[in-house]
Structure formats: structure tokens, C-alpha cells
Amino acid sequence: MLKKLLAHVPLFVLGMIASGQALAGSDGEALFGRSRPWQMWLQDPKTPSAEAVYDLNLLLLYVEVGIVLFVLALLVYIMFRFNAKANPVPSKTTHNTLLEVVWTAVPILILVLISVPSLKALYFADSAPDTEMTLKITGNQWYWSYEYPDQDGIAFDSNIVESEDLKPGQPRMLSVDNVVVLPVGTKIRLLMTSNDVIHNWAIPAFAVKLDTVPGRTNETWIEIKEAGDYYGMCSELCGINHAFMPINVKAVSKEEFAAWVVKAKVEFAGNSPETSIPGKVAQLNQVAQ
């Protein structure tokens, strides 16, 4: 019985250790902004908030693996030392005040220690007062609408690229027709709402995950550290095509972004009023006047 149990215990331990290794190694590949096959740990963090969240998760991993291994060690020891063969006469001990105080107080201490960096990261990731530009995001069944109010209201919809239309190098289920181009090294405010049901705009590498709720506007911020493609998926069940409304942010240098803005104004000219609730409200106001 014990041998059998021990034989299946390594499953957990190996998994825990392997996930630690995966995060230490990063495979040396410059692949970020999306997940790798057999990935066992978080995606590489590419915003200040994501770095804080990443470090916190790392701390939690070590604490938690420690607790699991501690309990496992106790269990295994107990099963060897106190099985019916090894210990035929059971003790009748049912109290040990010191022990009970310790196993109440030590967890409290650990939790207090965890909560300090946790709350720090929470407040840090919540909002930045000095953002330089704004991106408005609107969830729809089943695509995203984006608007750049600081770039003369560039606006467009972003739909999934179907599997059969994929170009080489485009990942399946993550690629979109119109990518969101954003500058690196810029504090960007994200405002989110929805036109229909609740969706959730999420990019793991940014540690951004926020519901788009109809009738409400939610806010968060990012400052992307590295140029490249970042992918995410809708993260709140929103109906039949919930799995098929991906998010693709292309982070570029500030100069490239300025060039894109010039091009995008032409490409998406006349797009803006139809795609967003504020745009619709403005339209209705005009009609009313």
C-alpha cells in the first residue's frame, strides 16, 4: 500500500519542480506575448504591472510548494511510523495547546507576509495618474471595437482570422484582421465597455484582465516594455463564439506608431461614429438637434 502511494506521489512533485524549471529557463527563445507548447508557468511579463504580478506569483509558488511538500512529508512519515504494524497500540492524545497555537499562528504570519506584496501589486496595477494616451475598447458579440480618442478618433473593428484564411506565421485562433497598434514605453489608459453582454479583454503578458460591462466603463493601464505581437482571448463566457474573439496587440516604437497613425487615419476614415457607444450617442444627439 505504501509503495503504491509513494509511486504516484512523484507525479505531483515532478509537476511542481518542472514548473519551477520552466520559469527559470524560458527556453531561450525570443517568443513572448503568447504561450508555448507544454508551457507550465506564466507568460513573460511585459508591463510594470505584469512584472509585479509575476514576482508575486513566484513568491506564492515557493510558499505553496513548500506547504504542500511539508504536509506530504508529514503524511508519509505518519503512514510509515504509525501504521498498525509499526505502532499496534494507539496513543490517546487529543490535545496539545502549544501545537494548536502554533498551527493557528504560523499560517496567520505567512498570510500577513503574503498580503504585503500582494496589496502593493494590487494598488500599483489599478491605475496610473499620468497616462499619455487612451485606448477605448468595446466588446461585441463576437469581435472587439477599438478607438483612439487622442489620435483623432481612429476607430475600427477587430475580427478573428478564420483558420482557412491564416497567412504563414499567424497563430490559429489568436490572429485578427485589424491588430491594435500601440507604442512601447508609453503609459496608456485602457477604457472598456460593451455593446451587448459582458466580455473580458485580457492579455496575459500585460497582466490585464478586465470585464467589459454594458452600461459601465472600466479602466486600467499598461506601459508595454518591448515591441512585438501580444495575444489574448475573451475571458468571460459571452455566447456561442466566446472562444473566437481574440485580441492581438502589436507593440511598436513611438516613431512607427506615429507613422501608423497617419496611415490608419486614411484607412479607417469615416469608421468612428458607428463602432462605439459614445459615437452612437453623439450621432443620436446630432439627429436630435
Binding site: 507525479l11 507568460q43 497563430p171 495575444y231 482571448m233 466566446h242 472562444a243
Partner: peptide
């Protein structure tokens, strides 16, 4: 355990819940 333990890895890598299909990177686990 074989069923649910790998789902930790999928979640850490970013696979959302409640989807009938997923990006190919999540195929292994």
C-alpha cells in the same frame, strides 16, 4: 490527478475557461 493537475499549467499559460477549441500551444496538456 492526471486529469486536473495539468490544468494548472494550462491556466498559468493563459488558456481561458469555457472554450470548445483552443490555440494550438495548449494541445499537449
Amino acid at each position: 490527478n492526471v486529469l486536473f493537475f495539468p490544468q494548472h499549467f494550462l491556466g498559468l499559460a493563459g488558456m481561458p475557461r469555457r472554450i470548445p477549441d483552443y490555440p494550438d500551444a495548449y494541445a499537449g496538456w
